[in-house]
Design a protein around this nucleic acid. Sequence first.
DNA 1: GTCTATAAATAGATAGAC
DNA 2: GTCTATCTATTTATAGAC
Lengths: 211, 211
Amino acid sequence: MVKKLRRPRGDSRPAIFQAAAHEFALRGYDAAGVDRIADKARVNKAMLYYHYGSKQGLYVEVLHDMFRAVGARTRAIAQGPDAAEMKLDAWIVTMVEEAAARPWFPPIMLRELASGAAHIDAETFGMMNAVFMAVRDVILQGQREGTFREVDPLLTYFTILPAILIFFARQRVVAEKRKTVQSFAAAAPREVDEFIRHMQGSARALLRRQT
Amino acid sequence: MVKKLRRPRGDSRPAIFQAAAHEFALRGYDAAGVDRIADKARVNKAMLYYHYGSKQGLYVEVLHDMFRAVGARTRAIAQGPDAAEMKLDAWIVTMVEEAAARPWFPPIMLRELASGAAHIDAETFGMMNAVFMAVRDVILQGQREGTFREVDPLLTYFTILPAILIFFARQRVVAEKRKTVQSFAAAAPREVDEFIRHMQGSARALLRRQT
DNA sequence: GTCTATAAATAGATAGAC
DNA sequence: GTCTATCTATTTATAGAC
């Protein structure tokens, strides 16, 4: 008889966090199953409530973890001494790295944008907004320096950001559908390095003052 | 006693369609409730199964309706006689008009991109892909004509499209959160005309050959 | 075409033993 | 910290009367 594999005792909290992040990314908040999260983390469902209180509480932790990391790095870049173009390049690298380090980040953020931020509390919303504020500062700096056009910072932010989010979300789509749907043969997955160059070039093209 | 308002008999099918489109957009496929759809359409739940067979069948109809409309208009533009820059401008107007005419289109498509197209059958996937193919043809045309840079058509498509989708999805976020979250005061809603100009300008900036 | 009633499965959450 | 058992509400779907 095969003994059921067990995690070492005491590390159930991070195991639940990981499993929840993946489940929320895969199915969205409402469709995510507390039972499925517990199974994936190989813990009892009651442990989830012991550590996090509720499904909502668990979701908020995942969101805060995301925006803490992204927010801190974005603010650091915005407050640095570099020229605006360099800062924008660095921010794109940051977002790509965070999306790669937390694969659940792009799907979750896309879903929240799609649902009107339905499951986001005021505090988390403030963290989301702080990221925008920092990027807006960089765009305004570039406009003061004369290197950027007089674009609308908000509309420009929401042109660059979703492109990054969708790139990562799309990688999964392509990988899975290419097996069965021949019409998607043209859409080979792209390399991350190639995408960073594309995105940096796109952002510069969007913002650079015409001559 | 107040008599319950009734729809005229016989038009339950379109009423269900409308209600379903909104429910799918608001909550996503998995979290959408057949009961809620029936209530919203003011029909009995059994009617939904009578007309559409299943929740999945209803969802597929909503998807097909979306991509039929977008696909036909996109193909017509791509096959027309205009220069590539004009075609791209026209396509952006098309997408904005379709998103305005079908408010459920941007949220549903964003969710599918976020979930890896989990609920999309092969046929619908082909329709989605046909839109990309037509836009790719326009980009290739512009490159042959010498007006567009040698960008990757796929990465460029997925830079322009999500910006349009998110703009509409975001309008709802802003409208609702601005009431309660003061930190979002900076993010006033934008006018659609203003957005079209921004998006056409962005697409041209992305693609125009540098001098 | 339209309705009621209900089946059968699954959801989030909790009490209480260990 | 960890587990079993269970409560209650909600889910998709169907059978059958009208």
